[in-house]
Design a binder for these strands. Structure first.
Lengths: 195, 195, 195, 195
DNA sequence: ACCAACGGGACTGCCCGTTATT
DNA sequence: AATAACGGGCAGTCCCGTTGGT
């Protein structure tokens, strides 16, 4: 067959990634067998393995792109903003994200390599919080690092929750609560003055 | 071998379960191949599958026992107490717990069956909170159901976090923060009076 | 447990044989797994293997007893008589008989050992026919050995037929035809005289 | 490997079938393990199961092709002709044919599905016989259906006999006898006139 | 005499990735 | 570039027969 124009090749890569995301999300990494990927992409093994060295690297490409997207959101609007946008994300994103968690747990090599990305997101969030503490919009009676850990726990829990598919209306209320918890509480100062 | 005394048989079953827990936690459900289970238990396929119909039911036995244990802790001391005890739990517990999450996500049939257990834990936690609201120890400006969702998110996030193996010293600080967030804040009343 | 009285032991052996016959007939040799045999006998592996060295020898015991029974019938009344009695035999007998055929085909060692029994039945039948030819009740324009082969073909075909479970009412008519074919035909002599 | 020309693919399929036939005939269905099939075909599991869904469907493909071939012979020359040609058939055919008998016996579902084929062969044979009765070449003192049953018994017995591998020279003599038995006997009319 | 715990071999079928062919 | 034929490893499961203990 003739060589396709580069843009077409890229489109093909993207299409494979999208299909693979659906498959990984729906069936998990192991459950998304090559046969399933074929069905989901509408392409043959040969085509898939032509664009990606193996199943693993296909998965990593997805994970990486997701990690970058999350980092961008956190950089722009913080962890809480990232959480508020989670429900908009497609189910595929959540699934892949959880598969990443799983491999973090079971594959030390993967964890070591991935830890850098997580740390960078964490640092970005922490910088934002420290600035906000100085700006007086975030409480400063709790260490910024503790607040980040707190927010990341809620974030990860929310990913698990949403990925499970349980429809839940009061997520917004919870996020409001989280936001108030982090925000500077005028009353706290008041209390402190009294004592 | 002959019919052993029931206690001996039970001990054997328990030993297999413990070994399987380690394997599932360390390698994941798929990664814990029967060969791995053999190595971990020190028994042969024949022996393992004599006590458990198949790998699946071995896993379910673990999940069930864990679910019961968690339910007991929540009944006794609430979700926050359950979280405080998470780090004491062996790593195996966390791994199995996450594998359960994964199957909740990828296997609708499993989810339908398992949902009942989750609901019962949720209800138990909610009852505790409502009582505490009436007793004046838990804030009542936020619906109990929202608080439960909040706590469960933190709980699930914590499980993910701990299972990943990242050693983290300030989990206690985070849990303190969570607890204060849920507890009745005298200042809030004060504010309300002022307005 | 105490040793049972010899007659009880024998009864147990017989019971196992009867149950095994049902199992072999219904599921075939391979399909009659030890688990199936346990269910059918109501005994455990241990009990079964206590009375019979292994599955193979259990099967051989059945086959042998059947071969003896058939030989007795043929000795007494001939092959046609044996065929007439086939429908009365229990389904188990037919099944075991066919399993024997199968192993005759696939296992040369078994065939060599079993051939003697078949030959003795064949000889017995042939002797009867030769005598009957001399006595004038069986046609002598066809060699006795040919007649025996003929009868054995019909016999084996009938076993297959009955074992398949197809209910067929006109077997009697067919056997009548077979009998007339073998019997001395007065007309044949008449024809010969004419020519 | 790429998409081959249809004829090449067909040739490969046929080669696999031929090898499988040998294996099934020699070792029986259970005895023809996938390992044996690999050895006999010279191909790997992957290749074999690429062309056939599983061992079962490989067997069914053989059985079906054989059933069609038999039906064609019976349509063309009748059951006796089919029997005369049996010794020419390769041993594989006989083996597969017997494995079919076995499954007819042990698997009701298979029997129900297969019965149609057997019925059609039977009907074809019966039609031929009725025509021949009217044409005066086949005896009419016995019902055509009885004659068909008779011929089928001989046929099935012959298959068992040949498959067992016992070399037998006088099969021709037996088939001559069978043919005479079915053919119209001028002497019978003579007898009837006399009485 | 009987039972169940157990070992370990072998089964089928699926897996992923490569390669020969369009 | 894409396909489908193919290899070979290994998964879970079930098999049969043995053994330790009542």
């Amino acid at each position: 067959m003739p060589r396709l124009r580069p843009e077409t090749v890229d489109a093909r890569r993207t299409a494979i990634l999208a299909a693979a995301r659906r498959a990984f999300a729906r069936y998990g990494y192991e459950g998304a067998t090559v046969r399933v990927l074929e069905a989901e992409t509408g392409l043959s093994r040969g085509a898939i393995f032509h664009h990606f060295r193996d199943k693993e690297s296909l998965f990593l490409a997805l994970a990486e792109s997701d990690a970058r997207a999350t980092a961008a959101v956190v950089d722009g609007g913080g962890l809480i903003e990232a959480m508020r946008r989670l429900p908009e994300r497609d189910a595929g994103w959540l699934g892949v994200s959880l598969e990443v968690s799983r491999r973090l747990r079971t594959e030390p090599a993967f964890r070591d390599e991935w830890q850098r990305r997580l740390d960078s997101i964490r640092q970005s969030a922490e910088h934002r919080l420290v600035s906000a503490q100085h700006g007086g919009t975030v409480r400063d009676d709790v260490a910024a690092s503790t607040l980040v850990t707190f927010l990341r726990l809620v974030h990860d829990g929310l990913v698990v929750h949403l990925a499970a598919g349980t429809p839940d209306a009061d997520i917004d209320a919870v996020l409001d609560l989280v936001e108030r918890t982090v925000r500077k509480d005028p009353c706290a100062d008041l209390q402190r003055e009294q004592s």
